[in-house]
Amino acid sequence: MTSLDRLAMYTEMVRIRQYETRILQEYHGDKTPAWDIGAGLIPGEMHLSAGQEPAAVGVCAHLKKGDAITAPHRPHHFALAHGVDMNAMTAEIYGRTTGLCKGKGGHMHLFDPENHFSCSGIIAQGYPVACGQALAMKRKGTDNVTVAVAGEGAANQGAFHESLNLAAVWNLPVIFVIEDNDWAISVPREASTANTSNADRAAGYGIPGVRVEDNDVEAVFEAAGAAVDRARSGEGPSLIEVHTLRLLGHFEGDAQAYRPDLETVDERDPIPRYAASLMEAGELTEAQADDIKAAADAEVDAAIQFAVDSPIPTPEDALQHVFA
């Protein structure tokens, strides 16, 4: 890991954070009435990933052209870190014809075949699909890999277990990523899960399982690097569980009354912490940090503008694309 890697990861985390901060603002900005999540320019549920950037950035730093990701309902950080076009993604979130899915998918169903990126609103169900993508890569003889992402709550789904078994028995180039943000909506993992370590569960399938405890992008980077190398070289699947942080509610509108750790959430924010560590090491200055943020803001501004200026689908479009 070079200083450039670290700066690039910091920059990407800031880019994602600035994006979501702005989406959050725009999402709530024009809701009339304010409680109606279906109102406004960005309608529907909104699941933001703020605080979980290290998981996406540390993993995606190792991915190359042709590598695939299946993300869950909280997908923005993985999408952006994997190179999904910010304009097209934003237009999709705004439900516009220029969006990734022409306004048919929305924020939980982003599809970008060029980057082999997809997500599903049904948790853990991207895992089997990722296995199939990995099977295809293996059959085609490439050294591409697939990353399957889910939260710790999703690891109680059968799809999670079926996929781990399938990937192990077929030796598929998959990296299973579990983002453990402590909360399955409102239920803490120890209340729902007999074996709370998914590294253990991976071991049960003969898959190396690693748990990265401290939401540190460099620790994720190292673990993911080892897992991606392993997959590319035909050694098979690995699982990385990142103990990460949900800075916001499960969805926008979640008051989080169930959550006793809210007071300390901000001090655990991984981005300022990483900035401080890079500054202490002399690898980042305040001025640079300001520039990185400003560049991110400019890109985000342009993406929002692109979305807002884009055409709204016509009612007739609803009947298109059922079949190819």
């Binding site: 074996n195 370590s197 399982g209 690693v210 748990r211 405890e213 620790a219 190292e222 673990a223 080892a226």
Partner: peptide, 21 residues
Amino acid sequence: NPASARDIRRIVAKGGAVTTH
């Protein structure tokens, strides 16, 4: 320690699993 035997040495070496159970 709930976190012992979980680090990157599961992948870069042949570190075994000592599960919660």
